[in-house]
């Protein structure tokens, strides 16, 4: 119907079908995307402080391993995830403590203290960290992260949030 304002029955049907189809697609498509990515938009809460050991039982000058679990609600389930680290008492002073996370800053494997190498070694890509957590060798871009802590009645209590540079 060129040149006239008249809309043919055929064009009207085409237009309405397209419009209704479009509305349905968007009306379901957008919620569907929200539905899919929903878990990525949920904030995970910081865990409660965790007691990891008596100060008197932790030797001075040698990394002391500890581990803890954090249970989070994922979907309809509680998932217990294991974390760990090392307490390093640099001197007899109860405040002079460094608490490192054992999560490798490369791609997240767990590092182990190796006595003879005098370093934390990562089994995944051979990273090597000094006793203080600095990178000695391998691919990690930044030092091992640490935890904040308090001493309560002679017990070391950590805040289970890793502190450090962004990887």
């Amino acid at each position: 119907m060129s040149g006239s304002n008249h809309l043919s029955r055929r064009d009207f049907i085409k237009f309405t079908t397209g419009a209704v189809g479009g509305i349905i697609t968007v009306g379901i498509g957008l919620p569907a995307v929200g539905f899919l990515v929903d878990p990525a938009l949920k904030e995970s809460k910081a865990g409660k402080p965790i007691a990891i050991g008596k100060l008197e039982e932790i030797p001075v000058g040698k990394p002391y391993p500890f581990s803890f679990t954090i249970t989070r609600v994922n979907g309809w389930e509680r998932t217990a995830a294991n974390y760990g680290g090392f307490v390093l008492r640099k001197s007899a002073d109860p405040k002079d403590i460094l608490i490192l996370s054992s999560r490798c800053t490369h791609l997240g494997c767990t590092v182990n203290w190796n006595e003879s190498a005098n370093a934390y070694l990562c089994p995944c890509h051979d990273a090597k960290f000094s006793v203080q957590g600095e990178v000695l060798d391998g691919p990690p871009p930044i030092p091992l992260r640490h935890f904040n802590f308090t001493i309560e009645d002679g017990v070391v209590v950590i805040v289970p949030v890793e502190i450090g540079q962004e990887g």
């Binding site: 569907a32 539905f35 929903d38 979907g75 309809w76």
Partner: peptide
């Protein structure tokens, strides 16, 4: 059962889908 309960109450637009 729990996963469907979660779809209905825990996931954005779960009730709709």
């Amino acid at each position: 059962y729990d996963s469907i309960q979660y779809i209905m109450t825990g996931v954005a637009f779960g009730w709709l889908i």
